[in-house]
Simulated assay, not measured.
Amino acid sequence: MEKGSLPRILVVTAGYGEGHNSAARGVRDALTARAEVRVTDLCAEAMPGMFRLTRAAYLWIIARMPRLWKLMYEVSDKRNLAEKPIKGLAPVERLLEWLLREWKPDAVVCTYMLYPYMLDSLALRTGKTVPYLTVVTDSCVINKSWLCSESPLWAVTDPWTREIMAEKGLPPDRLCVTGFPVNPSLGVLAREHPVSWKEGDPFRVLYFAQRSARHARAELEAMLEAAPGLHVTCILGHRFRRIYPHIRDLRARYGSRLVVRGWTRRVPSYLSASHVVVGKAGGATVHEVLASARPMLVNFLLPGQEEGNALLLEKLGGGFHVRDVRALVSALRGMMADGGAQWRRMHENLLKADMTGGSGKIADLVLKLAEERTN
């Protein structure tokens, strides 16, 4: 790095689940004006056809066959990727090698668990090392795939996760509690847009429809019937065309109490206007909700890492898993009872936890790695 120039930071991610990409964007945003940043989905760029196929298979399995996903997760939790690398990823490692050689980053941030092993392999093969940091996008339940690299630093979401990883044999001095690298604006939302509620006011639910049309319809109808003051903003995302025809009549029936949106960049705005979030326990969603200090009811979770995300919500006293529609309705009514006493406690618990600033802390760590390399 030339004197006076900005350090170059390479952020490598993979689009298998939104958490990895969300973390990469959060780190990028926090490094703006402090570094020259390049975010690359190595799998998508190196093997586009195979990536599309495997990503589609991944999404199909988690949506339709969660028990198969659980089995796959348990198998991966027994494998040391340093000793038994996944075969067929040579093009991905070659692209990474090319980026290190041609773009010459001063440090690398890995938000996907396979890349640290590739960096270790390249260091052994070429004799050239680039400092890197591993961002662990899971909480409380940590798969072995995160644990067996020679990473100089691991950035983890919370003290419980740090303790679990230390118990599994990682050096405590290389485990840094940073929080999840969410969009930095969400921390501003929690501080500058406090939310309150009293009986008679609309109780606003932000609902992410991340399962089937049948589930979306059943949950929306049940929530809107639960209490006349309950209002729902439903985010359909890329499932809009698939789900909307099945819920169109609900908009006519419930009027302004139901707002439906497709894909949107305004999630922080919708969070700021909501009292509670209902959705799947994905890493990105849970940590965006935590950073904005809005309580969450988890209506679906994948066995394995998403169980850990739901557990973190419970440990912080800011949410829990509702196993079916009846439990969802009961939870919402409970949060609104007694003038919203339970909801207020959960909101205050999350404000006290202050799960903000993860992106900035990770940016500080990787810039320090880059500086140490050049000194």
Rank of each mutant, 00 (worst) to 15 (best):
R248G: 00
L189F: 06
L236W: 04
L220D: 12
I235G: 05
Y244K: 08
L224W: 08
L206K: 01
H215S: 11
F240D: 00
A190S: 15
L175M: 11
H193E: 10
V182F: 00
A209F: 04
F240W: 05
A222Y: 00
R211C: 05
F240M: 11
G187W: 00
F203M: 12
Y244P: 02
H215E: 15
P228K: 01
P171A: 09
A213L: 04
C234P: 09
K168E: 14
M223C: 15
K168T: 04
R174H: 13
P228Q: 06
L220T: 10
M223S: 09
E167W: 07
L189P: 11
K198G: 03
H215C: 06
E219Q: 06
V188P: 01
P181L: 10
R248A: 11
P202Y: 09
G229K: 08
K168R: 15
L224G: 08
H246Y: 06
P245C: 10
L189V: 15
I164V: 15
V195G: 07
P228E: 12
E219C: 00
A218R: 13
R174A: 12
L206I: 03
S212W: 02
W197E: 06
K168A: 14
R204Q: 07
G237K: 04
P172C: 03
D173L: 12
H246S: 05
L224M: 07
G169E: 14
P184W: 07
M165D: 03
R241I: 01
K168Q: 15
A226Y: 04
D201Y: 01
